[in-house]
């Protein structure tokens, strides 16, 4: 194909290189298109904001909000009610951690933090506020942003927004419970 006698380009060698170049570009282009087409541009996935119900109807303690894959905590103290929300997706490899705080079988020692959540897949353990206690989880469970929906007063969990611990408490006054549009 190529002219070995001299380095002068001939018509034959030029056409040969041209053919190789065009063929190569076409092959690379098709390969790129094939791979790129598998990276989705539009995701038909559920919203990251999930309504968790009216604050007044959420029981005290820990409640799983399934659609958000998150636990909502409610603590009522007089006029004030505190909410915070924590992801239920294990930071290790994404299993759903299970609430085990109710189990009283293990004695609570003073120097050991109490286990609130355990992961069934690889045994990570988290305290009630999501800090890693034991197991392979590399990070604490993130706290998620909470808000009250302006249209119907439901508690809204935003799984796309992580918030700092202790700053995420939503103090909610029960006297304003009836402010809702129907």
């Amino acid at each position: 194909m190529s002219n070995t006698e001299s380095h002068e380009p001939t018509r034959r060698s030029f056409l040969g290189k041209l053919a190789l170049g065009i063929g190569g570009i076409a092959a690379a282009g098709s390969a790129f298109a094939a791979v790129r087409s598998l990276v989705p541009n539009v995701l038909y996935e559920p919203s990251k904001k999930v309504k968790a119900g009216l604050p007044g109807f959420i029981p005290d303690g820990v409640t799983l909000v399934k659609e958000a894959r998150a636990y909502v905590f409610k603590k009522s103290a007089g006029e004030k009610t505190e909410f915070y929300c924590m992801s239920a997706v294990c930071t290790h490899l994404g299993c759903m951690v299970q609430y085990v705080g109710k189990e009283e079988s293990e004695p609570v020692t003073t120097n050991k933090p109490r286990v609130g959540f355990s992961c069934p897949c690889h045994g990570s353990q988290f305290s009630l506020d999501g800090a890693v206690v034991a197991g392979p989880a590399p990070k604490n469970l993130p706290w998620l942003a909470l808000s009250v929906s302006p249209d119907d007063g439901q508690l809204v969990v935003d799984t796309g927004t992580q918030v700092d611990r202790e700053k995420s408490l939503l103090v909610w006054d029960p006297s304003q419970q009836n402010i809702r549009k129907v």
Partner: peptide, 17 residues
């Protein structure tokens, strides 16, 4: 292995995954 190999050096953590 995945369940056992997360290691921590100070605040530096490598996921067992």
């Amino acid at each position: 292995l995945i369940a056992d190999t997360t290691f921590r050096v100070g605040s530096f953590v490598v996921n067992g995954g």
